[in-house]
Design a protein around this nucleic acid. Structure first.
Lengths: 163, 163
DNA sequence: GCATGAATGTTATTTTATAACATGCACACG
DNA sequence: CGTGTGCATGTTATAAAATAACATTCATGC
């Protein structure tokens, strides 16, 4: 996987378009794979994409409840499971939360830079990091199946605001 | 932090000595820092070190209960909090579990290679990985405060056993 | 139409973690 | 030696995150 440019969402951007694009990509991807992006799954994906920040399952549950009346946890968790299986969202382990994937086409795990101030999370797929990890794995004779790389700190914007 | 040799615990090793050494290091470290490694905290640390695998808080709770009668969750969580604050244990986010740190003297976060078969986890502090992450953070203008790097897969031993 | 399997609904429960307040214990100071 | 002050632990209750198990609904292929 080649490096991509910083996935840092510009402070101000056309977020509606950003969400629409994500949903559109999801539609096309599922269609191509013969998977069913049902209304519920689509709606959950839309909620995940409503912010460029990881969101907890119960936050999503509450949002969803606002839109379609009382909803039980399995409803959301099943949708999240599906979306994860399709690579449309990632789980942020250190926050028990979920975030939309900007590049769902190819399977990957990504590295997440998460600002503790504004909560924004940027996904990178830096070959440099993956390769460094691969080299160490090789040294150990370890076969990696799943990667979790999460960096918590302050994003540039929040650092500058803090000065 | 320089690279260390693989922290892979040899399949067969004198584990009693290994635990004893960890406890001893903890004692000295806390003494030097003027922190109190109480009987409870020591006992929890010993339980964490009982295996080279991440263990859940409630597993530890159960073990602890066997040794000192009924114990409530906060008892264990508070001990774990202390041990973490002293750098004596690490939390494995992707497993909600804890593992002893073999190099508690210097603050660091480490990279964890966790075998899904034998459950053994190896801690590395590979400068190569840290540096690759640092470079990307720099590019983003992101100030890292906390790192989570967890690789799940198959260790060499289990791969060979599987063939 | 209708059978089939996938998706969703529903209820209950498990697992992980923390809040809030009570009690105990060790050391610092007089 | 008290004793009181602050940290450590005990206790009870609850919050937060996730899943198990079974019922119902719905879309699609025949």
């Amino acid at each position: 996987m080649p490096d991509r440019n910083p996935a840092l969402p510009p402070a101000a951007h056309d977020h509606a378009a950003c969400v629409a694009e994500a949903l559109d990509r999801a539609e096309r991807l599922c269609a191509a794979r013969g998977e069913r992006l049902t209304a519920l799954r689509r709606q959950v994906l839309e909620l995940v994409w409503s912010r460029h920040a990881p969101q907890g399952a119960y936050d999503l549950l509450e949002e969803l409840g606002r839109e379609r009346g009382r909803v039980a946890p399995p409803t959301v968790y099943r949708a999240l499971d599906f979306l994860q299986a399709q690579g449309l969202i990632h789980r942020i382990e250190s926050l028990n939360a979920f975030i939309g994937c900007p590049v769902p086409e190819a399977r990957h795990s990504g590295q997440f830079f998460i600002c503790r101030s504004c909560r924004t999370a940027a996904e990178l797929d830096a070959g440099t990091i993956d390769k460094a990890i691969d080299r160490e794995a090789q040294r150990l004779g370890f076969a990696i199946e799943q990667r979790t790389v999460e960096l918590l700190g302050l994003c540039q914007g929040c650092r500058e605001a803090a000065r």
